[in-house]
Amino acid sequence: MATDSNTKLLVETLTAQRDTFLGQWTRNVGEALQGRLSVAELGRELGELYEAVLQGLAAGGLSGRGDAFGEVRSLLIELSRNRARQGFTPTETARSVLALKEVLEPTLTDDHEGARVYLQFARLLDDLSLLTTEAYVRTREEIISSQAEQLLELSTPVVKLWDGVVGVPLVGTLDSARTQVVMEKLLQTLVDSNSTHAIIDITGVPTVDTQVAQHLLKTVVAARMMGAQCTISGIRPQIAQTIVALGIEFGDIPTNASLSEALRQALNEVARDGADDVRGLL
């Protein structure tokens, strides 16, 4: 009965002073966000949340558990995801909920019964603010992961150097994830451009160890399975010495010191293949 009376008192107070509380809540949050969100948008978000909290309290009490607060949780997750995309901090996001405590405190703590209700509701708001932080963190992780994938795509370009010849200029470390992206983009470009020669340039790769060599070999094998002849260019003196010292074997894979030399040889082979095709038709 005590819990029911507390909930009833809270719902009646929130309903009777809705405009006052919501207006002050919107102003407090707006000040914390320093005007980076329009008053209209902020008022809409908090207005929907205010009504959902009222409905949740009326249906499920101050526990905040169960389906009664399902709408509240959904709105907070959406709010948190929006804040994360808009560049707000976790603290600014959580404050969108916690600021309601500051609004209600002067009104609800006038007497002992009101103070007890306020403390119960404050605990509920604390729990809801934790939900916003969790949703915010998940969204930021998704954004960071997506950006990392985009950067990976940008850092592994496959370009058409000439008719029948494509190049893969690699810069930085070549790991398993990047090797997979390189192979996928290279194979797709070979098909799209109908190319028969691929040059993998490692001028921008700082070091070549056994693992990097294995990744290069995987890429070459994948391209060869598509019928393309592969050349590795950019073999600097230091890289050549390291490869020899490690005993790395490239087998029958052609290598060149420079991209220009690799391209020259590839063009000669393309021209020779074309001549062979012509002779085959005669």
Rank of each mutant, 00 (worst) to 15 (best):
T210R: 13
S233Q: 06
D192Q: 15
L216N: 08
I199Q: 07
H197Q: 14
Q214F: 01
S193V: 07
S193P: 01
T196R: 12
I232C: 12
G234R: 01
Q180T: 10
S233T: 10
A228E: 04
G204F: 00
S195R: 09
H215T: 04
R178Q: 03
L217T: 13
G204L: 01
P237F: 08
Q180W: 00
I239E: 02
S195L: 09
V182E: 00
I202W: 02
T189D: 06
G234P: 02
I202Q: 02
I200T: 12
T179D: 01
R236T: 11
Q238G: 04
H215Q: 11
Q180H: 05
A228G: 05
A228M: 09
L187Q: 09
C230A: 11
R224Y: 07
V208A: 02
N194D: 12
R178D: 00
I200V: 15
E184Q: 14
T196G: 12
R236I: 03
E184Y: 05
G204W: 00
H197T: 09
I200Q: 07
S193A: 15
I239F: 05
L216H: 09
T210N: 11
G227E: 13
V182H: 00
P206F: 12
M225Q: 05
A198S: 14
Q214R: 13
Q188R: 15
V205K: 03
A213Q: 02
A223Q: 10
D192N: 15
Q214E: 11
D209Q: 08
S193F: 05
M183L: 10
V182Y: 00
Q214G: 15
A223Y: 06
I199M: 13
A228H: 07
V191G: 10
Q238P: 02
L217N: 05
T203S: 15
D192L: 14
G227D: 13
L216C: 11
I200C: 12
A213D: 03
L217A: 10
I232L: 15
T207C: 03
N194P: 00
S195M: 10
C230S: 15
V181H: 01
T196N: 08
